[in-house]
C-alpha cells in the first residue's frame, strides 16, 4: 500500500537520516523524499514529505519510532495527491506499450495514473484510453501533461487535454 507522511525535523545535522531509519526497520519501500530545508515552518522546523510503500499494519510502529526520536509527524497515511486531471489518448494506445506510457507518469513520484478505461473497437482500428492522473499539486499536473504530450509525439498518439488544466 502506498502511503505518505509529512514530518517536521529539527534543523540540526543527521535529522533527515534519522527520520528514514524506521522505514528501513519496518521494511518500508521509499518512493520519494521531498526535503525543504529552505522552507522552514514558523516554528523553525524543516518540512519533509515522504512517500513509501508498506504493509499498513506497520505505520503505527513507524510513527512511534519517529516521535520517540523527537520528530514531529504532522500527517500520515492520507493520500497526498490533491490535484487531478483527465486525459484522453487516441491511437494505437495498447500496442505502443500502454504500461510504459503509464509508467512515465508513475515513475515521477509526484503523479500517478489512478484510473484507466480503454475502448478497442477493432484490431486495426485506433483505440482510446481515458486516464485520470492525480498529482501532488497544480504544477505537477502540468508536468504530467507535458510528459504525456511528449509520449504522444513519440508514439503517434493524439493527446486530448482538458481545458481546465491550464489557464487560457
Amino acid at each position: 500500500m502506498r502511503l505518505s507522511m509529512d514530518l517536521e525535523l529539527q534543523d540540526i545535522p543527521g535529522q533527515l537520516m534519522q527520520s528514514l531509519e524506521p522505514f528501513k526497520k519496518y521494511k518500508g519501500n521509499i518512493i520519494s523524499v521531498v526535503h525543504h530545508r529552505d522552507r522552514k515552518t514558523p516554528r523553525g522546523t524543516v518540512p519533509v514529505q515522504i512517500v513509501f510503500e508498506i504493509d499498513p499494519s506497520n505505520i503505527e510502529n513507524i510513527k512511534k519510532h519517529l516521535e520517540d526520536n523527537g520528530i514531529v509527524v504532522v500527517r500520515a497515511g492520507e493520500d497526498r495527491f490533491i490535484e487531478e486531471t483527465s486525459v484522453l489518448l487516441i491511437g494505437h494506445v495498447l500496442h505502443s506499450d500502454l504500461g510504459d506510457t503509464i509508467n512515465r507518469i508513475d515513475s515521477t513520484g509526484f503523479a500517478e495514473v489512478e484510473d484507466l478505461s480503454l475502448r478497442m473497437p477493432g484490431i486495426e482500428e485506433p483505440s482510446s484510453a481515458y486516464l485520470r492522473i492525480r498529482a501532488t499539486g497544480k504544477e505537477e499536473i502540468g508536468k504530467s501533461l507535458s510528459i504525456l504530450r511528449h509520449v504522444g509525439a513519440e508514439k503517434d498518439l493524439l493527446v486530448i487535454e482538458p481545458i481546465e488544466a491550464e489557464k487560457i
Partner: peptide, 27 residues
C-alpha cells in the same frame, strides 16, 4: 491539430467521464 483522428469511441469514453471533445482555439 484537427479533428480527423477523433473516433466515436473516444467521444463516448469522454462523455462517460463527464466531458465533451471540442476543437478549441486559444489566444
Amino acid at each position: 491539430t484537427g479533428i480527423r483522428e477523433i473516433t466515436p469511441e473516444a467521444l463516448n469514453l469522454a462523455w462517460e467521464r463527464g466531458y465533451h471533445i471540442k476543437l478549441i482555439g486559444e489566444v
